[in-house]
Design a protein around this nucleic acid. Structure first.
Ligand code: FES
Ligand code: FES
Lengths: 146, 146
DNA sequence: TTTTTTTAAGACTAAATTATCCGATATAAA
DNA sequence: TTTATATCGGATAATTTAGTCTTAAAAAAA
């Protein structure tokens, strides 16, 4: 089992994207969001609270409360979300866990991997949530259980 | 915390590489290998047994026993090791965990990520253990504890 | 044959990650 | 003011991954 981003991070991105896709309504509740995306309610609640503390989202309690984007969709990049949840240690560590990963002392795929991880970083940094939302086909969101 | 390969997979690659770097001696014991690489003895023992069952390594019990490569170093690719331990599901699943990841229905970074994961696959498939060993600077292996 | 060394195998423990539960707090609406 | 609805925060549970321990089996050497 190989993964790139933690499940927390995956949920975070999916959730922020969902919020960006609904600019009309003021606030979206965790209930609606997790039902539509078919992801776990309580777990995602914590993630959204985390993103709120870090300024990426805003929240409001009480009836008609919920979550919304903390800034304009075009000002939120995938990289900001990844940094907030997972961090970007993959940019500095060896892809195979070798103890050193510097230009002086490194494994045999260091240069090749260096180019790839730069591409990944670019992908995250250059993609904002507004673009993501525009390009995401709605069909992604199937009605889920819970 | 983002990762690409499991720790098991990292250890597997490091271990196979260590074996490839010692073509002189016939068999290398888990004791020597884990001491030199500074990785956990019993955990790695299981991984080596796994790789042996899958034919990538050979093993021999008793004094002067240990592990060795199951085929020529130039015939073992990184991809084979990754396939044996982690599998290559990352080649088929969305990098952000969106439920669909096909050319018909996909997220907004699907094409971009597709190119990147192809590069990763190429990196794994084109790199054999002989090359890896030749290019790996010995300084990687510091004397460890245990 | 006995001893020593080393892998094989399975049960067990520990740690990290993922997920749930519950009581408190804020707040809008009745 | 009361009630219903949401987030907030901390504790707890479940699952997965990582790592350890113990006993058996094989094989070389004494
Ligand atoms: S040392 Fe392996 S990627 Fe840098
Ligand atoms: S759907 Fe996201 S990478 Fe394919």
């Amino acid at each position: 089992m190989s993964i790139i981003f933690s499940r927390q991070c995956e949920y975070a991105i999916q959730a922020v994207l969902y919020l960006a896709l609904k600019p009309d309504k003021n606030m979206i509740s965790i209930r609606e969001l997790t039902k539509q995306l078919d992801i776990p309610y309580h777990f995602v609640a914590k993630i959204l609270q985390d993103l709120t503390r870090k300024g990426l989202l805003v929240s409001h309690k009480g009836p008609a409360g919920g979550f919304g984007l903390g800034m304009k969709a075009k000002d939120i990049t995938l990289l900001q979300i990844v940094e907030a949840i997972d961090g970007v240690s993959f940019m500095n560590n060896c892809v195979f866990g070798f103890p050193n990963c510097t230009d002086e002392d490194h494994c045999a795929v260091h240069d090749q991997w260096g180019k790839i991880r730069t591409k990944i970083h670019e992908m995250l940094a250059n993609k904002n949530i507004l673009e993501m939302a525009a390009e995401t086909k709605k069909v992604q969101y199937h009605s889920g259980k819970q």
